[in-house]
Design a protein around this nucleic acid. Structure first.
Lengths: 204, 204, 204, 204
DNA sequence: TATGAATGAGTGTTCATTCAT
DNA sequence: TATGAATGAACACTCATTCAT
């Protein structure tokens, strides 16, 4: 089809029933991640992904109705991995501890595969994909909950959550781009940013 | 020739000396900006830019050796416009005032043409382009100077400047994406983020 | 793009201004005709057409927005050639002579390039194309006019015209498929069919 | 394997002996008919047929050696159904009655599933298939027999039969395309065409 | 110097067919 | 024998870039 994606279907095409297929699907998604990391957005193409995954292009299209669906699946995988970690924040005794935990999870996630994380963040804002993802939503609502506990009475906490998410992503992406490795230090700086922001932003 | 840009030259092919050429170059760059805004990264192509600029594709290639050079020129134009504004920060009486001015300039710049600004930020991190841009550098050094005045004794002020730049960009891009219009409010939040960060980040 | 034509544009993409282009366009259309004749509907593809025309696939797409547009252009060329001939029927002294002339033109047209004519007839009924062609219309109205002169008072002359057109096409296509060469004989049989039909179909 | 069918075998791969298989074969053929009707020639593919039939693609290929064999089987089914009806014409008392009966059978057949009938007519002329079908033959010889009774002494009755078949098909296909429903009226017109033709075509 | 026709490698996607299970 | 995952050649179409005019 076209290069310009004309309202391409995004749902997975076939739910793999046999274990063989599940492996294929997983290997394709991981290949997509690797291609994105090594070739960037403009080197990312379905043939390269299939080749890297060691499957035929036909197989790729059996499971993903198009290029965007592939990126979407990769996003979901990364989101899911992040959530598994981040959700534990809600179990923390204090709002502060919860927020600190969330910061830790974000930093860990982003520095694990910094290039991948960055590119997925970029793609997330693509018109076609953002709808399907409804991505920030879940994370944002998690953060709203945490803010409510960390700083009761905060007005416009969705706006604050949006800003804080943007700060985390901004700082950590940039650190990833600089190939920073010192997680401790990075976490400290993100904490400074978030708690500093929270302490100064209007209560209402 | 290939799609994948094989180490394409990035310098302008011809330095326009006659006013006619300068106009042509400017119109091409502005056309590039508009195509980027209306068609996005994946709709951005040299033929479309030439058409929008009202010149032939041949003329476009007479002034720009390739697609990337065009994007680069657009980036430089935007940077230059921003600097014209931001440099005034150095004339402010206090470090705090300077930083506040810089924040104002950033917000203004980003909200003027939010889509364009966002996409250029994305492109800026493309390996091929970032080298040529040496982008953050100048802005970062400006910020380092301001930090030195606003908070003398700050250790690792390059790192702090990097973080703060990332925060500004993160918050303001997100606001642009949400189509926020209230500049006052946005500036207030960015100030909270930056001054909050500065107040908490280790002095040494 | 997709194989399944998703409401592909059908208008010519670029009106050739230079004589060079006009030649290119003509050569592409003729190549399309030849490919259709030699490879049939299922061997008809844009790459083959471009190769046969001696132009690059890119050039083909500069003038035709898609495969269907190419077929459409070929149809129009054939229709135009036919009309140049058939329109002379209106100048005939009697309705009978006009109808006989029209039959002659049809037979000539169809036996000139029988395979091509047959395949275009088939394509003409493809949903996507038939709208754009509005093809039969003109021919049908010509025939309606002629019927009115040949047999005044004929009721439902549009229906009769439709039937007669179908008869001409049916008989002549079949003759073409059988590789008949005797135009005289074929014309005689078509006349028998049409005048026989007209003499028996209800006047009112 | 290739798309372009390389002289694919057309005989059924396995002659079904058990009732189970016969059912499967029938359901596949009917599915093929339905896909042809709903998706047209270009939406007709073996995977879709198998899905519609509720069998696996592997099973389809167990009974049919390829796509063309499937179409061929469908053609044969339709021909057979038509013959069951049409053969009764031979029992009619007069040649005229026989011809009228044959016209009726043709109209009935074509209007039953007009889209299907039309598409099969189109396919019938595909070089690869027509050989195997030897399609017109049987019907044509039936018509030759009838002509001999209706109009003894008619010269070149095979040619006449060919023309008449083409007329029937042409008129009735066109009527089907126009979604005509009035069988009576259509039969009347076809009779006018055929008897008109017969009365005027040279006896010797 | 400007034009725009021409190029062709590249990319997304389909679908007939095979074959391991 | 039935299944459906896998294959890969084929094809539609784009767009960066060149070069004859």
């Amino acid at each position: 089809m076209n290069r310009i994606s004309r309202q391409q279907p995004l749902k997975p095409r076939k739910v793999p029933r046999q274990p063989r297929s599940a492996e294929t699907v997983a290997s394709i998604i991981e290949a997509a991640a690797q291609i994105l990391e090594t070739a960037g957005l403009e080197g990312f193409n379905t043939n390269a992904v299939a080749r890297r995954a060691g499957v035929s292009i036909g197989s790729l299209y059996q499971y993903f109705p198009g290029k965007d669906a592939l990126i979407l699946a990769l996003m979901r995988r990364e989101k899911a991995r992040f959530y598994e970690d981040a959700a534990a924040a809600l179990g923390k005794p204090s709002g502060k501890a919860a927020l600190e935990y969330l910061i830790g999870a974000s930093v860990r996630q982003q520095l694990q595969r910094p290039v991948l994380a960055r590119l997925l963040d970029v793609e997330e804002s693509r018109p076609g994909l953002s709808k399907e993802m409804a991505a920030g939503d879940t994370l944002q609502s998690l953060l709203v909950t945490i803010i409510a506990r960390a700083k009761p009475g905060q007005k416009r906490s969705e706006v604050a959550a949006g800003d804080m998410l943007a700060m985390i992503q901004g700082i950590v992406d940039a650190a990833g781009a600089r190939r920073e490795k010192d997680i401790e230090d990075l976490e400290r700086r993100v904490r400074a940013a978030l708690f500093g922001y929270l302490s100064r932003i209007g209560k209402g």
